[in-house]
Each structure stands twice: as C-alpha cells, then as structure tokens.
Design a protein around this nucleic acid. Structure first.
Lengths: 341, 341
DNA sequence: CGTTTTTCCGTAAACGTTTACGACAACACA
DNA sequence: TGTGTTGTCGTAAACGTTTACGGAAAAACG
C-alpha cells in the first residue's frame, strides 16, 4: 500500500532519480522507460508522499483559510461563508492544493493560530476573512513576508496583497436610491461596530447617496451594534427614538436585521407596512423571514473561486508566465426585491 | 525568519541531536543546556518545520473532513455543518492538529478526492459526514486500513470505526408521540431519498411509534424526495393526494420542510392552522420561517468536539495509555416547540 | 584505586522526494 | 578517425526532523 519511489526503482531495476524524472514528465528520460515507470506506478499503486515532497520543495501545497469570528459571534458568519468556501476549495482543488480551515476563539487567539501556521510552514499562503479596518493579521503577514489574500478590504498593509470585496459602498448607495425613489427621506442605517471595514464602506455609500438627493445626514439615524441578532435587537430602538422617526432602515448585516425586526415587532411596527427594511447582505434567512426581506446579494461561490485565482496569480510558484502581480477587485451585489420595503 | 534546528545548533555550538532532544523534552539532556536551547529558540524565533517532522514521523498532524454533498445540493448541508465543524476544529486544535476540508463535486468525484488524501498521506485520519446506508467511502477506508470516524451511522464497514450520530429514531418516535397526543392520527412522513442512512432511522422511529399507538402505517403517507427545497416542494403534494388527507407532516430535513410548506401554501393549506408540521433537524431557517417551525435540534458544536475525541482515542498515536478502542454514540435531540404544530 | 553505573552528548541514518552534476554511449559531423 | 553533440541515466546531496547507538566523562561503588 505504501509504495515509494524506491520500490518502483527496485522493481524496474533502475535508479530512483530516473523514476522521479519519469513521473514528473522531465525531458531527459527515454520514452520507453517512462512508459514502464508509469505502468509500474499503476501496478504498485504508487502515489507520491506529500510530506517528502513538501520537505524537498519547501511548499506544502495547502492554503489556510482563517475565519476570525466576530466578537460575540458563535456562528462564524454562517451561512455567509459556506458558498465562499465551496468556491475557494473548488478552484484550489483544480491546482491540487488543499484547504486548511483555521477558526479559533474570538480575539487574540486567532493571532496565535496564524503565527503557528506561518512559522511552522503548515501552509503556503493564507486567505483572510472578516477584515478589520486596521487588521493586525494583515500587518503581521506583510511584515513576515508571508503570501496572503483577503476577502474584504482593509487599511492595513498597503497594496501588497490581492483582495476581493463586495461593493458595500455601492450597495449602500443603491439602497438609499431605491428608498428615496419610493418616497422615503428619513432613512436610518444600522451597521456593525468593531472596526469591521465593510461597515465604513456601507456608510460612505449611504451618506453619498443622501447628499446627492439633498438629504441631510442625521447622526441620530445611524447606529452601530454587535454584529449578531442581539446587537440588532439592542440598537434598533435607539434609531426609532427620534421624534422625527425614520420611515426606512438599511441593515448592514442579516443577523442584525433579524434582531432589529424583532425589536420593531415589539414596538408594533411592521416591516413592509409601517417601515421599509433593506438588508445588505442577503442570506437564506432573509428569504424565509416574514415578511421576506429585500436584500442585496453577492455571488459568493464565484467570489471564492476568483479569490483563489487572484491568490495563485500572486504566488511566484504558481503564477503563469507573467510575474507576480497584486490585484484588487470589488464585485457588485444584486438586489433581490422582496416584501420588506 | 526561517531558522532551523541547525541554526540553533550552530549558534550554541552543540549538535543538532541535542537540540532536538532538548526541544522535545527528552530526559537525556542536561538541565542547563536545555535552558540554553530553549532560550536560543526563543531568541532566533525558531519553530519546527512541519514538513520535516511529518516526513520523519510518518504523521502529518492533520485530519481531513470530507463533506460529501447530497445529490443536487449546492449548499453542502448548510448551515448544519458550520457548528459541527467549529467544535471539531476546536478540539483538534487543542491537540495541535490541523483540519483539512475536502468537498468535491457530488457523486463519484468525492471518492477520488478521498483516495488522494489517503494515498498521498495528506492527513492522518478522516472524518466522514453525510453517511449513506451503504457507503463506498467507508468500504474503501476500512479496506485500506486508514483511520476514520463518521458523523452518522452506516451499514458498511462493521464495527471498525468510531461513529457519532443523532438519535433520528427517537426523534421520529417523539414527533409522532407529540402529534398523537395532540389528537392527530393521520401523520405523514417525508424523508430524503438517496440511501442517506438517517432517513431509514427516522422512519423506523416513526413506524414504531405509530404501532405503539395502534395506528396502521399507511404507505401513502410516506414519501421520499431530493434532500433540498425543490425535493420537498415536489414530493409533499403526493402525500396530500390521499382521499383521507393527513393532518400532520413530519419532515426529516429542514430544506425539504421549507419546500413542502411552499407547496402547502399553494394548496391553500396553512401550517400551524390546517396542518401540523414538525421538522427533524432544526436550523436557523426553521426559527425565522413563518410560521416558525417546531423542530428537533441537535447539539452540533459539542458533537463536533466529541467526535474529535472519539477519533483521537481510536488512534494509537494519539490515544492515552489505554489501547485503541472503537466507540459509538447516539445523541438525543431537543424539541424546540414553535408555531407550526 | 579499579570497576561499574550514570549522565550527557555527538554521530549518523532514516523518512520520500527532487535535482544538479557528471558519466557514458550513441550519434553526427568534418 | 577525431571531435563535438545529443540522449539517457546513475550518483549523491539536500530539504528539516527524530532517534538508535555508541562513546566519553563524571559519578558511584566496592
């Protein structure tokens, strides 16, 4: 079962060097011997031992995906990440690369896990998610010169790594556009705290659209909260306290929207009737909620595949003929109109 | 940055053997030299190279989690697996083990991915999910003598591997119990096809409970379908065609229940009013659906941790003092009573 | 003081690959 | 025939560890 390159060599009475070259498609091996080697490999059920390969080549052929949980989040952004992970894994598999998933507790612990991966060279590169505006993981990786790519932008690290993000700014902008077109002028925005970068991007788009429509930005209509249901539940009433109540709310997270709707229900306010609700980013939860929530949806699986490509293109060892180059892409979201706005 | 054991040895002017023994806590090394080695290791920022270690020890210190998608399922059982994966990963991390996630396309392809992991020795053991009644992955792994554990039981492979499962039989039983207590006698059961083992277990419990209550099992009230929303949508009407319509339906999957409810809605039948609906297994979707679906909920994160423990205990290399032993556990579900029954 | 035991360390092999280098034969060419 | 070229292969080192083995010095013992 555990046949090595030595077994093949002994079996064929040739040297291990020739066997290796034959298997790796090198030019300097006779066509006939190559055929014999490949036959023997099939016969003896040979597969190269990855540990031996990794050691010699200095590359593990595996990529680590680091999932940093939001503070207070038990669910790791579920179900946002599964389709992304699916796409990422699919593309990596095409390059014969494995995917390592590293989670870890919220906060500091993730840094330790990251260091471990980097220092013990358990992976050739790292994919980061849940990027913060200032992200110490990015600082660490840039400083260490370890290859990585991010799902989400950050202000850390400069232009040294590939990144792929959703266009939260445009989604915030379009959400306001849509609401204004439907007659709303008092539009609230609820977003996550904790320096998550997309919260800033969303708010930029929100503000820009308001100004374009000549609507003054009212700080009393903007609130930050924990990025989970409890956070939405807790923070939504704050925005409704204004004596000039908003007629619409844009939630920058699905879980927060769910919690917010619960709070609204307790206040006797019905989304879709008494108030308009739009969610950025859509998940299956939005669809099955009652009323079904109008939401902006990203293409997560293609994004996963794309980020894998971008990361690979930035790795000298995997890139095509052209040298390594850093790319940044921002993908649009699609509006899924439902009942809540 | 990439300091090796040789660097330490050179720096301290001792041999690499001694350095290695010092780092690994061997007894035959002077207390003073050990201290000097550990200091130098910190100073030179040394971490052992995992590839070197793997090669020498014949163990990669990583476990592969194989997620076999259901046929026609784009979502990999989302969001069922995230909490399980979280628990699994957490416990493995405590043992300094990495988690590799392998997905692959539905069907045959998964076998290839599995062979690759096993033959190239990319992982020390494998965790299987979505077990079939007859599971060729289990057959393959047993025959190959490769260590593994499963989430879910199977008829394949005998008693040679640890397994952890939810008590679907009891959940089916209790669901019937609850419905009968509420006056129902015509109770339908909708479960996934494709040989998924839990569908059989569920039906066993369903039948047992019916018989206990003196209710004849009506084959016209049992239907199999694809394990997704479309499957539930397609198959539910079949059960409603009976001239003696059921007054309750137990769905053996959340997505199928969602699709089933859509079909019911189109027939003008309201869950929670005109018909009782119970779901096995609960996901967040059940909670936010309208009406909120009564469902049985497993403890997925603790289950992930537990299965990691069971797997590790069966591995000679990681077990405590006692030898390897195979365990099987079946965990109960908790009924979450909501509005649909 | 001689012998045995203990303590500590260095040497070298091994894990399974890949690859730089050189050797040798066959062949081509002048 | 001598020289250069090409094709094919073997040798051996290297990647970074761990560990069996033996040896030297120190300690213990008679």
């Amino acid at each position: 079962m555990a046949s090595s390159i030595h077994d093949l060599a002994r079996h064929l009475n040739i040297s291990i060097g020739t066997v290796s070259r034959a298997l790796n498609g090198r030019a300097d091996v006779n066509a006939d011997t190559r055929k014999r080697v490949l036959e023997a490999a099939r016969e003896l059920n040979y597969s190269p031992n990855q540990s031996g390969r990794s050691l010699r080549q200095g590359a593990t052929r595996s990529i680590a995906f680091m999932l940093q949980p939001h503070p207070g989040d038990q669910q790791y952004g579920e179900p946002f990440f599964i389709p992304f992970l699916t796409g990422l894994q699919a593309r990596l598999a095409e390059y014969d690369l494995d995917l390592m998933v590293v989670m870890g507790e919220p906060g500091q612990y993730q840094q330790e896990r990251l260091r471990r991966v980097v220092e013990t060279r358990r992976a050739d590169a790292v994919v980061l998610a849940n990027t913060r505006r200032e992200d110490d993981r990015i600082d660490y990786l840039s400083k260490a010169g370890f290859p990585f790519a991010t799902l989400g932008r950050s202000q850390s690290g400069g232009d040294t790594y590939p990144s792929l993000d959703i266009d939260f700014e445009r989604a915030g902008d379009e959400a306001v556009d849509r609401l204004v077109a439907r007659g709303h002028r008092r539009i609230a925005a609820i977003r996550p705290s904790h320096d998550l970068n997309f919260g800033y991007l969303f708010l930029d788009g929100y503000r820009k659209a308001l100004r374009r429509h000549g609507i003054e930005v009212d700080p009393g209509l903007i609130a930050d909260g924990f990025i989970n249901e409890a956070g939405g539940y807790q923070v939504t009433p704050r925005v409704m306290l204004s004596n000039d109540r908003p007629t619409a709310i844009i939630f920058n997270n699905d879980a927060m929207a769910l919690g917010g709707c619960k709070a609204l229900a307790e206040m006797g306010i019905r989304p879709g009737h008494d108030i308009a609700v739009i969610v950025i980013v859509d998940t299956p939860l939005c669809r099955y909620f009652s009323p079904a929530l109008t939401a902006f949806r990203p293409s997560l699986e293609p994004m996963g595949r794309r980020l894998a490509e971008m990361l690979l293109a930035s790795l000298p060892a995997f890139a095509g003929e052209e040298g390594p180059h850093i790319m940044h892409e921002v993908w649009p979201l699609e509006l899924i109109a439902r009942e809540s706005d």
